[in-house]
Amino acid sequence: MPTMADVARSAGVSVATVSHVLNETRPVLPHTRQAVLDAVEELGYTPNTLARSLVTSRTRSIGLAVSAISNPYFTEILQGVEAAALEHGYSLLIADPHDDPEHERKVVQLLHERRVDGMIVAPSAAPGGLLAYLGRHAVPTVLLDRVIDCHADPAPRFDQVCAENTGPTAQLVTHLAARGHRRIGLVAGLPGLSTTDERITGYRQGLAAAGLAPDEDLVVSGNSESTGAERAVAVLMALAAPPTALVTANNAMTIGALRALRTHGRSVPDDIALCCFDDFAWADLFSPRLTAVAQPSREIGAEAVRVLLERLAAPDRPARTVRLPCTFAHRTSCGCPEQPEHPEPSREGTLS
């Protein structure tokens, strides 16, 4: 097996120079760096990552903690994280916190004990223990998808990356109102999540923009999962004046809502219109095809890696929150005729 000394001899440089090139510990002239990389490729040299970590105090690994990895949304985020990490020479250690605050803290501690250089975490609805641990141990961390109000919490601030939620949800509501609907229901997500709160806020803003009075009976939690959405739709259908249109606040709840509407003999969109937050690869295979807000899932994952690497390079810079824009996929479940496949921008991303 070739050694670093073999690479140095082949490239005509010192072992120290090879080390600086591979560990990025000191600038090296471009032609010298290329000679080292060519020698590495020619000899098939594989760096000893354990030895490298002892020298640099870095393992070039990232811990990723996201719940419901089987959910297509988080699966695409994971793909974005993995591609960006690999591009920058980092490996991933992945854990599923199951949206349980105690389990969340434990799995993050296990990742930290594996000496990852930093964390990307989608926090639960009660992330107090998680944030306290990360802050106490000064773990470089990017919070993903679900943001927290760091200004109102004594815990240290964290970088955050997520999609816009409020404006795109309001757009779904105003679109349904423009179709003549006056009773628009919302199957909301798990209480306590920022995504749930922001999408409820967007729903209410959409009603206000359309001149519709809010009716709290039309907002029912589906707990961000399919069976919860089935129960929520059953509650809405049992109202004396049930909604004529529905907004579902994530893809899992869309599936549950469709199942419940079929059980209650409601046809989409003839009996009830439907729009959903979260697009997925096979949304246009349904009949009718689902009108949806599409989140930039892979871009969210890739951006989280970029923000984390910037944090590792500059630990003292101010924390920031990056929001990426969504797109409006206009299809037929809202009651509109077939549309050409040109997703519309939903709202500009913001940085704070």
Results as ranks from 00 to 15, higher is better:
residue 187 V to T: 06
residue 201 T to D: 14
residue 209 A to N: 08
residue 181 H to R: 11
residue 177 A to R: 07
residue 207 L to W: 10
residue 197 D to Q: 13
residue 174 T to C: 08
residue 200 I to Q: 02
residue 186 L to T: 03
residue 181 H to P: 07
residue 206 G to Y: 12
residue 204 R to S: 03
residue 183 R to L: 07
residue 181 H to G: 10
residue 203 Y to A: 03
residue 206 G to T: 08
residue 178 A to S: 13
residue 193 L to H: 07
residue 182 R to W: 08
residue 209 A to F: 00
residue 200 I to Y: 00
residue 198 E to K: 08
residue 196 T to R: 11
residue 201 T to M: 12
residue 179 R to N: 11
residue 209 A to E: 15
residue 174 T to H: 09
residue 189 G to N: 04
residue 193 L to K: 02
residue 207 L to V: 07
residue 178 A to D: 15
residue 192 G to T: 04
residue 178 A to W: 01
residue 193 L to S: 03
residue 202 G to I: 01
residue 189 G to W: 02
residue 196 T to I: 02
residue 191 P to E: 08
residue 198 E to M: 12
residue 188 A to Y: 02
residue 199 R to H: 03
residue 172 L to M: 13
residue 206 G to K: 13
residue 179 R to P: 02
residue 173 V to K: 06
residue 205 Q to G: 11
residue 196 T to V: 06
residue 175 H to R: 15
residue 193 L to T: 13
residue 174 T to S: 15
residue 200 I to F: 00
residue 197 D to K: 08
residue 191 P to S: 09
residue 195 T to G: 05
residue 189 G to V: 00
residue 190 L to G: 00
residue 189 G to H: 05
residue 199 R to V: 01
residue 184 I to E: 09
residue 174 T to P: 05
residue 172 L to R: 05
residue 201 T to I: 12
residue 179 R to I: 09
residue 185 G to S: 09
residue 190 L to M: 12
residue 175 H to T: 15
residue 179 R to E: 13
residue 183 R to H: 13
residue 191 P to C: 06
residue 197 D to M: 12
residue 181 H to K: 09
residue 176 L to G: 09
residue 188 A to T: 14
residue 187 V to H: 10
residue 204 R to P: 00
residue 200 I to G: 00
residue 206 G to F: 12
residue 182 R to M: 12
residue 172 L to H: 11
residue 186 L to V: 01
residue 203 Y to R: 04
residue 207 L to R: 12
residue 200 I to W: 00
residue 195 T to Y: 03
residue 196 T to E: 15
residue 193 L to G: 04
residue 183 R to N: 06
residue 209 A to C: 07
residue 207 L to A: 10
residue 182 R to A: 15
residue 199 R to P: 00
residue 187 V to D: 05
residue 196 T to Y: 03
residue 183 R to M: 07
residue 185 G to E: 04
residue 188 A to I: 00
residue 200 I to N: 00
residue 176 L to R: 06
residue 203 Y to S: 02
residue 189 G to I: 00
residue 175 H to D: 14
residue 183 R to I: 10
residue 187 V to Y: 10
residue 182 R to E: 15
residue 195 T to M: 08
residue 176 L to H: 06
residue 180 G to R: 07
residue 210 A to T: 11
residue 176 L to E: 10
residue 181 H to Y: 09
residue 198 E to G: 00
residue 206 G to L: 08
residue 195 T to V: 13
residue 207 L to Q: 11
residue 188 A to M: 02
residue 185 G to D: 04
residue 205 Q to D: 15
residue 207 L to F: 10
residue 180 G to D: 09
residue 196 T to H: 14
residue 179 R to Q: 15
residue 181 H to F: 07
residue 203 Y to Q: 02
residue 181 H to L: 11
residue 203 Y to H: 10
residue 177 A to E: 03
residue 191 P to I: 05
residue 188 A to D: 15
residue 197 D to S: 14
residue 205 Q to V: 09
residue 185 G to Q: 06
residue 177 A to P: 02
residue 181 H to M: 13
residue 187 V to R: 12
residue 208 A to E: 15
residue 177 A to C: 05
residue 194 S to Y: 05
residue 189 G to L: 00
residue 202 G to C: 02
residue 184 I to G: 03
residue 185 G to Y: 02
residue 178 A to T: 10
